[in-house]
């Protein structure tokens, strides 16, 4: 493998688009879209890993070419490992989305109830200064449980 390792423009754009789409999908509330985002992003990273080795060449099988014409094998091996790991994580997340759907009837990612409760408070519930028990309305205040990142 010789010559500059510079990633060509076509591949750079492809990788960029994959990352863009992956990032965008990750920011959604539907776990299934988040999952698809992970998969798309995974494709992007695997492609990046492979092209990080340098420009295309002969397959890294001894006998198909000289050391100069054969592509760098290591990134391919790493990408292969990464592909399998991404697959494992995808199926796991898929099952998680399924279970979420089974349990709560949808696969949308909810906001954290306790965080939202604290955001609506004035003082901590467990402050030293008041000993009386809190009423349940603090605990079930879900009026403000949705918020967008913007």
């Amino acid at each position: 493998m010789t010559g500059p390792t510079t990633i060509n423009l076509a591949m750079a754009v492809t990788v960029g688009v994959l990352y863009t789409a992956g990032f965008y999908l990750l920011l959604q509330r539907s776990l299934m879209r988040v999952l698809i985002g992970v998969v798309v992003l995974g494709h992007g990273t695997n492609l990046l890993l492979q092209i990080a080795g340098g420009p295309p060449g002969r397959a890294p099988i001894v006998g198909t070419g000289t050391a100069e014409t054969i592509t760098d094998p290591l990134p391919q091996a790493l990408a292969l490992t990464a592909v399998v790991i991404t697959f494992a994580l995808t199926t796991y997340l898929l099952a998680l989305g399924y279970r979420s759907f089974v349990l709560v009837g949808h696969d949308e990612v909810q906001d954290d109830v306790e965080d939202r409760r604290i955001a609506t408070q004035k003082m901590p519930s467990a402050s030293l200064d008041d000993d009386q028990d809190h009423t349940d309305e603090d605990h079930t205040d879900e009026a403000a449980t949705r918020q967008d990142p913007s």
Partner: peptide, 10 residues
């Protein structure tokens, strides 16, 4: 992390 590895290798 994987991206970083790709960048490091590149």
């Amino acid at each position: 992390f994987l991206t970083a590895i790709g960048l490091v290798y590149a």
